[in-house]
């Protein structure tokens, strides 16, 4: 019905009290494709200048609510299986896959392991991972620049969950977009190599702020570079005081023991929880 004059209301004849031709302009159409008497509202009213206003609806909902719902589901699965899930993030080329392959080789047989690989295209990384004998599933995100929690939920149907072990999620190489998407992981681990800039944490604060561990990679190259690793570490701590910081070289093995120690302490927490 018309919110101003009431014309068209069920049980009432058409316009009676005033002339629509000379009075207010009839503000809405009655020719839409549904019967009246259902639940939509016709309580809009004309403003002084004759323009009607719409109905105001308070929403107050989180834009990421759907992702966060999937993330909660994933986190519950990980908790039930006492699986430590780590979300590895970095720019392309910081050494995520190399560190992962080395880590899997060193930890294999000591704990159940699994890997979810995210890339825009190809299964090259998952192929590298599977060559270590660890179950891996590749997610191709196509044009998407990050993994989201629903992709992880799908992938979890395709590999056995490493109970009381570690699930590594290698995110798309991108220091911006994956920061905002909770996958249900226990921690984000951000890698930054010494061939990048010392100011990376300041340039990409969202990612460094979201991480629980910052790994500085390729430190074997330091003698060949003019790179202030202390400045990098200071910048990371400026953005994120609570994160741990480790330095390592996948190639020489320097610093790997601390990385494995960090994983093991976290894994004990999951199992003990």
């Amino acid at each position: 019905m018309c919110g101003v004059c009431g014309c068209g209301q069920e049980g009432q004849p058409g316009p009676a009290g005033h002339d629509h031709a000379s009075g207010h302009e009839h503000p809405h159409h009655h020719d839409h494709l549904h019967e009246h008497g259902h639940s939509h509202h016709h309580d809009e009213h004309p403003t002084e200048d004759g323009m009607r206003e719409g109905r105001l609806i308070t929403v107050e909902r989180d834009i990421l609510e759907k992702n966060n719902r999937f993330a909660r589901g994933n986190r519950r699965l990980f908790a039930d299986a006492a699986t430590l899930a780590l979300n590895l993030v970095s720019s392309p080329g910081a050494g995520k896959t190399s560190l992962l392959v080395r880590t899997l080789g060193d930890l294999r047989g000591k704990a159940p392991l699994g890997v979810i690989e995210g890339d825009q295209q190809t299964s090259l990384d998952a192929d590298r991972i599977r060559s270590t004998g660890v179950p891996a599933v590749q997610i191709n995100t196509g044009k998407m620049c990050h993994l989201d929690a629903s992709m992880i939920a799908d992938a979890l149907h395709q590999i056995p969950l490493p109970r009381r072990g570690v699930l590594f999620v290698e995110n798309v190489g991108n220091l911006v977009c994956p920061a905002g998407f909770d996958l249900g992981e226990a921690s984000k681990v951000v890698l930054v190599s010494v061939t990048e800039g010392e100011d990376k944490p300041l340039k990409y604060p969202d990612m460094f702020h979201a991480a629980d561990l910052v790994i500085i990679t390729k430190v074997d190259l330091l003698p060949h570079l003019e790179f202030d690793v202390e400045a990098l570490e200071g910048n990371a701590r400026r953005i994120n005081r609570r994160a741990d910081v480790l330095r390592l070289s996948t190639r020489t093995g320097e610093g790997l023991a601390a990385w494995y120690g960090w994983i093991d302490a976290r894994r004990q927490q999951m199992v003990g929880a």
Partner: peptide, 20 residues
């Protein structure tokens, strides 16, 4: 100093809508 914890300011929300 930098020993602070964020209370608000990182929200992503749909607040309200005007609809027909």
């Amino acid at each position: 100093g930098n020993k602070w914890m964020l209370v608000s300011g990182d929200e992503l929300r749909v607040l309200d809508m005007e609809v027909d």
